[in-house]
Nucleic acid binder design. Structure first.
Lengths: 233, 233
DNA sequence: CAGTGGTCTAGACCACTGG
DNA sequence: CAGTGGTCTAGACCACTGG
């Protein structure tokens, strides 16, 4: 009838994580500490931590301790991760260069994709993202002003458009397509690639709860970038 | 350095299942029996059985014993869609052309990726998939014979390699990377594209429950194919 | 160095299953 | 009933991490 003690310990830990008393990155009590606290043997306390590790709630490292894991990101391989996080996660330096930032009347295609009328004012930006000393991503965006009214006055060398937009209205959906293309000489020059070098092109459209936030085109040199993913069925 | 004892016991059991010495439904030795056989404590033998249970290879029942599980069916979340389904879903005609089908000794890289020893015999195939009158996908595979013993005698103009393999051992995991490349003249000719035309290249590695099934390289002309997806957060 | 998790032992009592 | 897996103890030695 009674739940096993390791289950009670697990529930205790889960509760503290759920109520944000322990947040992502925080260290949870060690096996010995829990054993003492709950008056059980270390093997029993260990089992609780062990299972929470297998369930992905904790990350355990020998010699260091057990830590609350980050909230599960997306499981899909088409993870929408921002470029600066990706680069800094690799231990490299990210730098953004603003090539263009303006308000323009929407052309028909863009208006359609954004769900606006033709000629409506939208924001337009072009950025170049560097990884250390090489350009990695050419980013062009058309933004619905409704979901990023202060877009034009942001300093995108400090915060990325993606961060700014999602801080205003959390993303709920995205459409994405991936293709292989060659680029025109202007983009090729910006990315410092040779004429005809294949590039990955991501076309993305993102939604927040109240509508379409922006459409973006991300271009990566084929030689410097690939999209990877691991799927579990 | 040395593997833990529970790992050795697990490997021992997996080997007996893979070689069909123990088949689905068979009872495997009890915790106590394994403890005696391997000269370990019951807790250690137990851990081996426990983990195999969690991994879905065994079904354990108190009072009864541990039994070899049936092969697990694949869940519906099919992100890895096969080319013929994709083409026919568009209302188009799919046709496969077998360019090569042979057994070869594994080179070091492939052996490593398949988790086999260098020089081990593996199967190698190259197919060209047509959508109506144009080639859409150049497919090269290296297959672990353990998970597709009759690979070489299949008629891949009738059933695809992907279907054959997943009918033998349901897929449980996949690694995938996507990149933009140019291809050599042989592949370019097969795909009927111009020199230097960018292509999408997918490198995929698939697992079944008991190991790595195959590694595949899928190449699509950039002008005829893109990968699309809709994400909900 | 003290603290952490990883492995392992030799016991114990229990709930459960079949014969 | 004898045998199974489920829980649990109080120890042990180890590899690893940071300070």
């Amino acid at each position: 009838m009674g739940k096993p003690r390791y289950t009670r310990i697990k529930e205790h830990i889960i509760r503290r994580i759920d109520t944000s008393r322990w947040k992502a990155g925080d260290r949870v009590p060690s096996e010995n500490a829990l054993a003492t606290e709950f008056g059980v043997s270390r093997m029993t306390a260990r089992r609780a931590l062990q299972e929470l590790g297998e369930e992905g709630l904790l990350v355990r490292t020998q010699g260091l301790g057990s830590f609350v894991a980050d909230a599960r990101p997306m499981s899909s391989m088409l993870t929408v991760r921002s470029i600066d996080e990706e680069i800094t996660a690799r231990g490299h330096q990210h730098r953004a260069e603003v090539l263009l930032l303006e308000a323009v009347p929407a052309e028909r295609t863009n208006a359609l994709l954004l769900g606006l009328g033709e000629g409506a004012e939208i924001f337009h930006s072009i950025l170049l993202h560097w990884e250390n000393t090489l350009p990695l991503q050419y980013e062009e965006r058309f933004v619905n002003p409704r979901f990023g009214p202060e877009y034009l006055s942001q300093d995108f060398t400090v915060t990325t458009p993606s961060h700014y937009l999602s801080s205003i209205s959390p993303l709920t959906e995205a459409d994405q397509s991936i293709e292989a293309v060659t680029v025109d000489s202007e983009i090729g020059r910006a990315l410092q690639i040779k004429r005809g070098e294949p590039c990955l092109k991501l076309n993305r459209r993102t939604w927040c709860q109240r509508g379409i936030v922006n459409i973006s085109t991300l271009i990566y040199p084929g030689s410097r970038y690939r999209i990877g993913g691991h799927l579990n069925f």
